[in-house]
């Protein structure tokens, strides 16, 4: 800290004055609630008759014995570990196609990107009809070919898969544009050289393009992971977490506990788990991966 002449002091005052309005709101709605969530997780849910009281790790003990918690945790792990890599793979494929000379390129690019600007609630309404038993589109098509189809959203084996397919469809086009930007910044000479050497397309992709896209992949991966924790809108329309919590995700369970079962103390405890996961992600991003991948 250097406090020197009048310019330095002026800097101090102006700097903080400019920052104050934003800082006030950030503290009120990001930092304070994060800390308060942690604090709340050590208390009981207060009622008019029984004021909230300190119970150490009782909420956490309850959580570890709560089979629903483990179920949604497992669901979220499956959901994230399938949606993230699959939407990245689709995004890369789309970007490569759209970056080349492709007939109707503009139209194809628009088609890939369109799901991004539609609200999740709206697209879930549309997909709900695809999955509806018997009268739904999927069942009608399968029926014409003589297949028996399960009740897609009513079956604990298929419901999570249905939700995952929708999530991939929604995200892939959004991630495509980051890859498109990255591909357009790659030097053309690289590819010409590779072609002269007689490298196959797949070889060129695997040894040149994909490694060079690594910073983009990291960026997309982090965002896609955050998305897989925080975007749960489609569950409200498609499944409400059911049947038997088979499609419920962590944040949806938090919502249910807080606003349907009205146990905010336990909901806070669950939120702490989510915050811890995000913190882990942040630490991973800043320490391990940033050292190995060079940003410009």
């Amino acid at each position: 800290m250097r406090i020197g002449g009048p310019v330095a002091i002026r800097n101090q005052v102006y700097g903080w004055l400019l920052l104050t309005p934003a800082a006030f709101l950030l503290v009120a709605f990001t930092h304070y609630p994060a800390v308060a969530t942690l604090a709340q997780s050590f208390f009981t849910q207060g009622t008019a008759l029984h004021p909230s009281k300190f119970i150490e790790f009782e909420n956490y003990r309850f959580m570890f014995d709560d089979p629903v918690f483990w179920k949604v945790f497992r669901n979220n792990a499956i959901y994230s570990s399938i949606t993230v890599p699959t939407s990245i793979a689709f995004a890369i494929l789309m970007a490569i196609w759209v970056n080349e000379k492709l007939p109707l390129r503009g139209l194809v690019r628009m088609a890939y990107f369109t799901p991004t600007i539609l609200p999740m609630i709206a697209v879930a309404n549309i997909w709900l009809f695809f999955y509806t038993p018997e009268i739904g589109l999927l069942d009608q098509i399968l029926g014409r070919f003589g297949f028996q189809s399960p009740n897609w959203l009513g079956n604990t084996d298929t419901v999570l898969g249905c939700v995952i397919v929708l999530a991939i469809w929604k995200d892939a086009g959004f991630f495509m544009i980051f890859y498109l930007a990255a591909l357009q910044s790659l030097p053309v000479e690289l590819e010409e050289a590779a072609r002269l050497e007689g490298a196959s397309r797949w070889y060129y992709f695997r040894r040149v393009t994909f490694p060079l896209l690594m910073p983009t992949t990291l960026f997309v991966m982090i965002n896609s992971l955050i998305n897989s924790f925080k975007l749960i809108d489609h569950l409200f329309i498609l499944t409400k977490g059911g049947p038997d919590n088979a499609s419920s995700l962590l944040l949806y369970y938090i919502y249910e506990v807080a606003f349907s079962f009205l146990d905010q103390a336990y909901a806070s405890t669950l939120t702490v788990v989510l915050l811890a996961l995000l913190a882990l992600l942040a630490v991973g991003q800043f320490t391990i991966l940033d050292k190995r991948i060079h940003y410009r």
């Binding site: 709605f29 990001t30 304070y32 955050i226 925080k230 807080a258 905010q264 909901a267 992600l281 942040a282």
Partner: peptide, 15 residues
């Protein structure tokens, strides 16, 4: 950027 308002629904509702 990491801890978005979506995650903090419980406390923000109390506020």
């Amino acid at each position: 950027l990491m801890i978005m308002p979506e995650i903090l629904i419980v406390e923000n509702y109390r506020t």
